[in-house]
Write a protein that binds this DNA or RNA. Structure first.
Ligand SMILES: [Mn+2]
Ligand SMILES: [Mn+2]
Ligand SMILES: [Zn+2]
Ligand SMILES: [Zn+2]
Lengths: 147, 147
DNA sequence: AGTGAAAATGAAAATCGTTTTCATTTAGAC
DNA sequence: GTCTAAATGAAAACGATTTTCATTTTCACT
């Protein structure tokens, strides 16, 4: 890792090391606050902006990608070898990942057809998970006006 | 339109009428500010929050969808009968739309497999357009550290 | 047409995640 | 060791989005 960063022109610091390591130990879709809390529990002296800047760096070097999803919070999603998409539940906000190999193939083709270089992609399906549909939390969007 | 809204439980007002009409006359991917400016040029008395609220309403009734794309500005994208995805140029920020019928088919299938109801989707490819690649604006991301 | 309740509006302020500033410290090439 | 560019931390700035609240307006129902 240290070498990897150095070749890209970045220095290694204790803070950076801890932040990077923690990030890759966490669950998918980490927010700045979440990572900040985790890192803080180990080193109380690390600043918020340092965490933020390093998360940006992780993206810059191609190890993660920013993702949004409705609420105004930016999350950081590790880029895995096997590309994936997101099923986002509008009810409970949960995210399910699914293999997007096939779709990525189509997208790559689309990029070529439009003379675009393909540096990344995002695939998201919004809907309601089984649990939320069961609870009837669904359609509170269309059928908002109930008696 | 008036009827359409009324059946959903919303009232019609002169402001709303102007905002809706203007929105559908504009180019794709309209921001609040852009629509506000347009509407303002016709009726100086309309407030920003009214424009904002009506844009939200347009989404709520299923006529548009919020989209992001890097910069922190929310844009509103009309939902067309034929589903489309976005090719987003990281260089000049331009957006090219492409037919996503095929992909949506696959996504619908994916939703079913995961017991998810499909209420919408987003498909985005990030990369560099032909012009930006020609200008060499590309890879200023990887090859940031030039002599 | 008149009335009342609910919805909509406009101006201003509040929110709040993100980003920048700046003084200071540190990494690492030479 | 020196030196320079990069990194850090605290605090402030930013800025788009969202809320508040007093006032106005719509429209279902007399
Ligand atoms: Mn993910
Ligand atoms: Mn579009
Ligand atoms: Zn759910
Ligand atoms: Zn371009």
């Amino acid at each position: 890792m240290k070498e990897f960063l150095r070749t890209k022109g970045f220095k290694m610091t204790p803070q950076r090391e801890l932040i990077f390591r923690s990030f890759f130990e966490m669950e998918q879709h980490v927010s700045v606050d979440e990572l900040y809390d985790k890192v803080r529990s180990i080193d109380r002296s690390i600043g918020y902006s340092t965490v933020w800047r390093n998360l940006k760096l992780i993206c810059r070097v191609g190890l993660a990608q920013e993702v949004s999803m409705g609420d105004g919070i930016t999350r950081y999603d590790r880029l895995t070898r096997v590309p994936h998409g997101h099923l986002f539940c509008l009810g409970c906000k949960k995210v399910i990942e699914f293999n997007a190999d096939q779709i990525v193939g189509v997208l790559a083709q689309t990029a070529v057809e439009n003379d675009f270089s393909n540096k990344g992609f995002k695939v998201e399906v919004q809907g309601f998970c089984a649990e939320c549909r069961a609870k009837g939390a669904v359609d509170s969007f269309e059928t908002e006006s109930v008696s």
